[in-house]
Design a protein around this nucleic acid. Structure first.
Length: 255
DNA sequence: ATGGTGGGCGACCCA
């Protein structure tokens, strides 16, 4: 079972990319972020033609998340319980017996910005929610655009990024609090090397100069850890014409 | 040099 995450930065623009990548990568489950489509505009028929069911929770212009799956998704949840939030950033469902939570974590803009405070409050609410989810569903995958680079190996220039947005200690502590629920960064179960990234800024020739961060993660619960056979990042779609600024990240779970 | 590119929308906001 191959499970992936991809921030597509507008599903309208990126449908051709998504199609090509689905054919090539053959994932069983995909969490999408930044679809930027309200629900009536979600292209579920086009995606069904590619062999995937869709559940989705979107809004116009900003945010928007979806889960695509080969088999039907059940028990779908589209908000953090008990947390007032206008922004469509979460969708969870049970697929083939695995609970999958797809997050589009708040970017935060800059340390100290009001959006940064919202990011930390949002992550605290997610932590409380996931504590309940992992209790109810021990076989849990939490994936998405976390907008946090877990440690300095995940940053092209740790000195330049030190303390900055996506790398600050409170953000990393908030991610740590999620991992402390009993989740593992699947990529680091298989790869310890620095310099593997999932996002490159459109500006400054970010991809060409490899000015990247690894902020797109697939976390697996302890109960799934032994089944986690491989993990990786598909850099290639980032090199295609008119790409998303993010690359897909994935994990395969053995039966 | 506090820049730059991209998406969506509608003449700025978000990343």
């Amino acid at each position: 079972m191959k499970i992936a995450t991809w921030n597509v930065n507008s599903l309208n623009v990126r449908m051709p990319h998504l199609k090509q990548w689905l054919v090539e990568a053959q994932p069983d489950v995909v969490g999408l972020q930044e679809t930027k489509l309200d629900d009536p505009r979600f292209p579920d028929a086009d995606i069904a033609a590619l062999g995937y069911r869709s559940v989705f929770c979107g809004q116009k212009t900003y945010n928007g998340v979806a889960l695509l799956s080969r088999v039907p998704a059940g028990e779908c949840v589209v908000a953090i319980p008990g947390f007032e939030d206008e922004q469509k950033r979460v969708i969870a469902a049970t697929i083939d017996g695995v609970r999958v939570v797809n997050l589009y974590v708040v970017n935060g803009k800059a340390v100290g910005d009001p959006k940064y405070d919202y990011k930390l409050r949002w992550l605290a609410a997610v932590r409380d929610w996931l504590a309940e989810e992992i209790r109810a569903h021990p076989e849990l995958v939490v994936l998405g655009d976390f907008n946090i680079a877990p440690d300095d190996r995940d940053v092209h220039d740790p000195a330049a990024w030190h303390g900055k947005i996506l790398c600050s200690t409170p953000e990393r502590d908030a991610l740590r609090a999620l991992l402390d629920l009993g989740l593992h960064d699947s990529f680091r179960l298989h790869q310890q090397e620095a310099g593997h990234f999932s996002w490159w800024d459109y500006r400054l020739g970010g991809l060409r100069r490899n000015l990247g961060l690894r902020i797109d993660l697939v976390l697996v619960s302890e109960a799934l850890r032994a089944r986690c056979a491989a993990a990786g990042i598909d850099r290639e779609p980032r090199t295609w014409e008119r790409p998303s600024d993010h690359a897909p990240a994935w994990v395969t779970l053995a039966r």
